[in-house]
């Protein structure tokens, strides 16, 4: 077991963050029109990119454990709080549809020069402050219906890990097919040239 290295130091944060931001921007995830296009079904990039990333990372984690490079319970698995995580997901989904971003993509949006992303961030700070102010009355709900600690899909269903990953991959493959078909029908997906119109050029003599 040589992994994980458990190094949550500055260098690890800088490296992971730099690559994360670079990939998000190159996927087009700084653009709220492209991002929200997922829910108008015009642009399935959010589903495609997220699903692929989850499957690739899950498969590599599984492989690392198979090869004995990583211990079974050696990395962080969040404990489910069914009520709070479902409602929290609903609020973040609503915020995404209305505001055009989630926390990570707002960072990519601002880095591309979008001032609406900065306003979204100010909203997030206000929302976090509201949560803290209301934490007393919210606490019971925050802790309601906890699952077993670090519960995985394998714990919940008894299905082996490789089969879960295979099923996810099949669902993802179906989603890719369906998404591409629907996108084309609705005139999407958003391309960079649709979102960044070419600046008007002064015509030079030919």
């Amino acid at each position: 077991m040589i992994w994980p290295l458990y190094d949550s130091g500055i260098a690890a944060g800088l490296l992971a963050g730099f690559l994360f931001g670079f990939v998000l921007e190159n996927a087009g995830f700084g653009s709220p029109r492209k991002l929200t296009g997922q829910f108008r079904l015009e642009d399935w990039s959010v589903f495609k990119v997220m699903f692929t990333a989850v499957i690739v990372a899950a498969a590599l984690l599984w492989l690392s454990k198979q090869l004995g490079l990583m211990g079974a319970e050696s990395y962080h698995i969040p404990t489910p709080f069914y009520a709070a995580m479902a409602v929290g997901g609903v609020l973040v989904g609503a915020g995404f549809a209305i505001g055009g971003y989630c926390p990570g993509t707002s960072v990519a949006g601002l880095a591309g020069g979008r001032l609406d992303a900065l306003v979204f961030m100010i909203g997030m700070v206000a929302g976090t402050a509201l949560f803290a102010a209301w934490f007393g009355p919210l606490e019971d709900f925050y802790l309601a219906f906890p699952g077993p600690e670090a519960q995985t899909i394998m714990d919940l269903t008894g299905v082996p890990e490789w089969l879960i990953i295979l099923i996810l991959a099949l669902v993802g493959w179906g989603g890719f097919k369906l998404g591409t078909k629907v996108e084309r029908k609705l005139g999407g997906p958003y391309k960079a040239e649709d979102l960044f119109p070419r600046e008007k050029q002064v015509r030079s003599k030919e």
Partner: peptide, 12 residues
Amino acid sequence: GGVLTGLGARLA
């Protein structure tokens, strides 16, 4: 959208 996201992310 930011306010809803801030609230939701803390809750989740």
